[in-house]
């Protein structure tokens, strides 16, 4: 079914009552800011895969960064040819690695529908197998690639990378939900609960990625002369209590500026609030090894170990450290 709507309110109302595969948005949609509308649609449809194309008269960098980070899957500038539009309209993504898993998901879902729970579990588990193995996080890898492309102003590549992150997020959510359903079908309520929780965790991560993108967009637009945008991102995320994401931002910051003691200090602080005290202490140590006069880091070292850096450089986190626990719980 095709439908043409002229206001943001009508679009949001329409997607509430209809299942959608493709949305084409004009840059002059009335009633709200376009990137806000894209963000709202994404937020509402969450794990549902969909094409969201923006056709625009505007190609100013600020505007492009906003719609990309809000979650559009394609950006077309006027005037455009029909071929361009068709290319962006392809519902079926190319035969990439993510696509293979998407086919597995479809097979799993149809097995689930016929009541073949054991076979369905096999398909779903194959999808999440790689994710569950230690150290492989493809969704994050694509997500961080997207951010790097934004910094380099390679917008087309940024869109593709963010799309792939989103596709993987929703793939894992559907696979976990499928696993939960299949286990429930077999009367295994313990596994049912466990996989529902994993689906919920993945939803939360998807929301966090969306938030990180928005903060990052703001930074890359405003702080154009910042030596390290990831450091600024880390601070903002720490203040928003997104500690895990803040730690990831600082790790990326250190790839750009490995000798900056301040980034180690910032990382230590995020790790402290994430309650990773041992990691935090080793970051403080790295900060002080680079700059032994860093007064904030010296204070933090004392808070963690209850000794002075100059008295003992290899002290451990003090046991029953009430002051530390209290600050980390703030």
């Amino acid at each position: 079914m095709n439908c043409r709507l002229t206001s943001a309110g009508a679009v949001l109302d329409f997607i509430r009552h209809n299942s959608i595969q493709t949305i084409i948005l004009d840059s002059s949609v009335s009633g709200c800011n376009l990137s806000d509308l894209i963000f709202q649609i994404r937020k509402y449809l969450r794990a549902t895969p969909l094409n969201m194309l923006v056709i625009s008269d505007v190609s100013a960098e600020h505007f492009v960064v906003d719609v990309i980070t809000a979650g559009c899957t394609g950006f077309i500038i006027r005037p455009y040819t029909l071929d361009t539009l068709k290319r962006h309209m392809r519902i079926k993504p190319e035969a990439d690695a993510v696509h293979v898993s998407e086919e597995l998901l479809a097979q799993g879902q149809s097995l689930l529908a016929t009541g073949d729970y054991a076979a369905a579990i096999g398909e779903f588990k194959e999808i999440v197998a790689e994710k569950e193995s230690e150290g492989s996080d493809e969704a994050r890898r694509y997500f961080e690639m997207g951010m790097q492309y934004l910094l380099e102003r390679k917008f087309g590549k940024a869109i593709v990378a963010f799309n792939n992150a989103l596709r993987l997020n929703s793939l894992f959510i559907k696979a976990y939900e499928g696993l939960a359903e299949a286990y429930r079908g077999r009367g295994d309520m313990q596994n049912y609960q466990e996989y529902l929780q994993k689906a919920a965790d993945e939803y939360a991560r998807m929301d966090q990625f969306a938030e990180v993108k928005r903060v990052f967009a703001k930074i890359t637009k405003q702080d154009i002369h910042a030596p390290n945008a990831y450091n600024t991102l880390g601070i903002e995320l720490r203040h928003k209590k997104l500690y895990v994401e803040a730690v990831h931002a600082y790790i990326n910051a250190l790839k750009l500026s490995p000798q900056d003691e301040n980034i180690y200090y910032n990382l230590a602080k995020a790790q402290m609030f994430a309650k990773r005290f041992d990691d935090a202490l080793s970051s403080i140590r790295k900060c002080l090894e680079l700059n032994a006069d860093h007064s904030e880091a010296l204070d933090l070292y004392r808070l963690f170990t209850k000794v002075d850096w100059n008295d003992d450089k290899s002290a451990k986190v003090a046991e029953n450290n009430k002051a530390l626990n209290q600050i980390a719980n703030d």
Binding site: T232, D260, N262, N291, H294
Partner: peptide
């Protein structure tokens, strides 16, 4: 201090 990065 050194550098031009913000401190938390």
């Amino acid at each position: 201090l050194t550098g031009q990065n913000l401190l938390d």
